[in-house]
Amino acid sequence: ENVVSAPMPGKVLRVLVRVGDRVRVGQGLLVLEAMKMENEIPSPRDGVVKRILVKEGEIDDTGQPLIELG
């Protein structure tokens, strides 16, 4: 899985990584606010952040691509 998608609709509060960062499975990639709760979205695998497809403050839909890993 190279693309991390939104598991729920919500607002992107914080992006915790930058392009080029090495990430490990379970590491937080970004924080979504949904139903007044903050949810940290973890990396599904080890890899390198290739692209960040959303910006802080954006509203996303379920299934929307958020981050691409390489």
Results as ranks from 00 to 15, higher is better:
S43W: 04
P42N: 10
V3E: 05
V25Q: 13
G28T: 15
P44N: 05
R24S: 11
V49A: 02
N39E: 10
N2R: 09
D21L: 08
M37E: 11
V4T: 03
G28F: 10
T62Q: 12
L30I: 13
K50N: 09
L13N: 04
V15I: 15
E56M: 10
I59G: 05
M35P: 03
S5C: 15
R24K: 13
L16V: 02
Q27M: 07
L66Y: 04
D61G: 11
K11E: 02
V12I: 13
T62A: 14
L69T: 01
R45G: 05
L69N: 01
G10H: 04
P7F: 07
G63A: 07
V15Y: 07
D61M: 13
V23K: 01
I59N: 09
A6D: 02
E56P: 12
R18Y: 06
A6R: 04
G26N: 06
I41E: 01
V17W: 00
V31K: 03
I59S: 09
V48C: 12
I67R: 01
R45W: 13
V4Y: 04
G57K: 04
R14F: 05
K11N: 04
L32W: 11
D21A: 07
V4F: 04
S43M: 02
L32S: 00
E68S: 06
D46G: 08
L66D: 01
P65R: 06
E68G: 03
P9S: 11
L53K: 02
I52F: 03
S5E: 08
R14W: 04
G70K: 12
L16G: 00
K50T: 13
D46T: 08
I67M: 11
V19K: 07
E58I: 11
G20R: 05
I52T: 02
E1H: 13
R45Q: 09
R14E: 03
L29I: 07
M37A: 10
N2S: 13
L53R: 04
E33I: 12
V31F: 03
M37G: 11
V3K: 06
L53Y: 14
L53H: 08
V49Y: 00
V31N: 01
V15R: 01
G26Y: 08
K50D: 05
V48P: 01
V23S: 02
G70V: 14
K36V: 06
L29F: 02
R51E: 06
G20T: 04
L32P: 00
V3P: 04
T62S: 11
I52R: 02
V54A: 10
E56W: 09
R14N: 03
P65V: 10
R45S: 10
N39H: 15
M35S: 11
E40P: 07
L32V: 09
D61I: 14
N39V: 15
L66I: 07
N39G: 05
D60E: 15
T62R: 12
P44E: 04
V25L: 13
G20L: 06
P7V: 07
E33K: 07
V49T: 02
V17R: 00
L66N: 02
G47T: 03
I41Y: 03
L13H: 03
S5H: 14
L13K: 09
R18K: 13
G26I: 04
D61F: 15
R24W: 11
V25W: 09
G70T: 14
M35G: 13
K55C: 12
V48Q: 06
V15C: 08
P42C: 14
E56K: 09
P65Y: 06
Q27C: 07
L13S: 05
L32E: 00
E68T: 10
R45N: 06
R45K: 11
E38W: 09
V48Y: 14
P7M: 08
D61Q: 14
M35I: 06
L66H: 02
V54M: 06
R18P: 00
E68V: 15
E38P: 09
K55M: 12
I59K: 07
I41T: 02
E1L: 13
V12E: 00
V48A: 03
L29N: 00
S5K: 14
A34C: 14
L66V: 05
M37N: 08
G70E: 15
M37S: 10
V25A: 13
L53M: 12
E56F: 09
E1A: 13
E68H: 09
V4E: 03
G26M: 05
S43Q: 01
V3F: 14
R22I: 13
D21P: 01
Q64V: 12
S43P: 02
D60N: 15
K50Q: 10
V17C: 08
D21G: 05
E40F: 12
E33M: 12
N39S: 11
E38N: 08
G10L: 05
E58L: 10
L16Q: 01
E33F: 14
L30N: 00
L13Q: 04
D21T: 07
E1T: 14
V49K: 01
L29Y: 01
G47M: 04
G63L: 07
I67P: 01
E58M: 12
L66G: 02
Q64I: 10
D60S: 15
G20P: 01
E33A: 09
L30P: 00
V3Y: 14
Q27V: 05
L69F: 09
L29W: 02
V12M: 04
L30Y: 06
L13D: 00
V23Y: 03
V12Q: 00
P9L: 09
P44H: 08
R14D: 00
L66M: 11
K50R: 12
L66A: 02
V49N: 01
R51F: 08
V25H: 10
V19G: 02
V48T: 10
L32T: 03
R14Y: 05
R45Y: 13
I41D: 01
V17T: 03
R14H: 05
L32C: 06
E1S: 13
P44C: 06
R51H: 08
E38L: 12
P44R: 04
Q64D: 13
I67T: 02
P42Y: 12
S43T: 04
G10P: 03
P42Q: 13
P44M: 05
I59D: 09
P44F: 05
V49M: 01
E38A: 10
L66F: 05
